[in-house]
């Protein structure tokens, strides 16, 4: 029994990894006052690019670098069109998501003549797993937290880094000030446009890690539509935590648990489709509950006056 629990918890961390990357990526732009709806496309682009370039060059370093570049290129297109040309940010982001679903398959076909996945067509590289010395020998706990992909550990490091960035650095202070009152920031010489570019760039960088985890860690190939809404779930996690990276990570892990559960359920007779609805239902329920709590709190405060 204990063994099953440990395996399940291990799976939770494994499937939560891309969600954590996505959620903290979303936190960075949210603190600058904008929703990054395009995390989905950033993940998808970097997942494919990482596989193709690492396969072609046989260098993991170059592959990952290309993955970052792909995601950042997307953030630049989105930032330029919405912050300089003043297109609607959300329409551009949604268009990007939709375009890349087909776009990645097209590029994959050009490079590999495959339309479903790159498995077998490209000998791409991947990031390995890490057994943590000492901890791996602790019963139960070792089974859960040791032996994960390097990127999984990096995701938790990233949470801490983003938290530090937002709350302990000058740039974080500026990001938060622009997010809350752009006029105030502008009046002391901070350019909101620059901050938007920067936060989207950082968001893209972090989302790229999530994408590459999918194709160079979780799996070792790229498959069409392999992000499958994870970017969107990450955004819900960020939203529930109103952009706080640590709380967003916890929310992402709740969704990860739901995801892992649906994988397990597929083994039994329970309809797994019902379980895979869970993250989304969960989002709606939590958002409604939070809105109710907010209204109640406001009423109580008004009555006090």
């Amino acid at each position: 029994m204990l063994d099953t629990v440990a395996k399940f918890l291990f799976a939770v961390i494994r499937v939560s990894t891309p969600l954590i990357f996505g959620a903290v990526a979303a936190c960075v732009t949210r603190k600058a006052g904008l929703l990054n709806l395009a995390i989905e496309s950033m993940m998808l682009a970097s997942a494919l690019t990482g596989v193709l370039v690492s396969g072609a060059t046989q260098s993991l370093m170059l592959g990952m670098l290309a993955g970052f570049c792909a995601a950042i290129a997307i953030t630049l297109i989105i930032s330029y069109s919405s912050f300089v040309l003043k297109c609607d940010l959300y329409l551009v982001s949604i268009a990007m998501n939709t375009a890349l679903v087909g776009g990645t398959v097209f590029v994959m076909y050009l490079c590999t003549k495959q339309k479903a996945n790159t498995a077998g067509a490209i000998a791409s590289l991947y990031v390995g797993n890490l057994d943590i010395p000492l901890i791996k020998d602790i019963p139960f706990l070792g089974q859960i937290i040791s032996g994960h992909n390097v990127l999984t550990y990096l995701s938790f490091v990233m949470v801490a880094l983003v938290w530090y960035l937002l709350y302990k650095t000058k740039i974080g202070l500026r990001i938060r000030s622009v997010g809350e009152n752009p006029q105030a920031a502008e009046s002391v010489g901070i350019s909101p446009t620059k901050i938007y570019f920067l936060s989207f760039g950082m968001s893209g960088f972090i989302a790229a890690l999530g994408g590459m985890y999918m194709s160079m860690g979780y799996l070792t190939w790229f498959a069409r539509d392999m992000i499958a809404g994870r970017g969107m779930i990450s955004m819900s996690a960020m939203n529930i935590a109103s952009g706080e990276p640590i709380q967003a990570t916890l929310a992402a892990m709740v969704f990860g648990a739901a995801d892992a559960l649906s994988n397990y359920m597929q083994l039994g007779s329970f309809p797994s489709e019902l379980i895979s609805m869970f993250p989304y239902i969960c989002t709606i329920v939590i958002l409604v509950l939070m809105a109710v709590a907010r209204t109640l709190k406001a009423t109580v405060e008004r009555n006090k006056v």
Partner: peptide, 28 residues
């Protein structure tokens, strides 16, 4: 200004030094 140019969730010190933040390198 009549409408204060301030960021409500930040502290007084953070608002006062916004844009000319003290600190070494990146750190605030």
């Amino acid at each position: 200004h009549q409408h204060f140019m301030q960021v409500p969730s930040l502290t007084v010190a953070e608002n006062v030094t916004l844009g000319i933040e003290p600190g070494r390198g990146m750190a605030f």
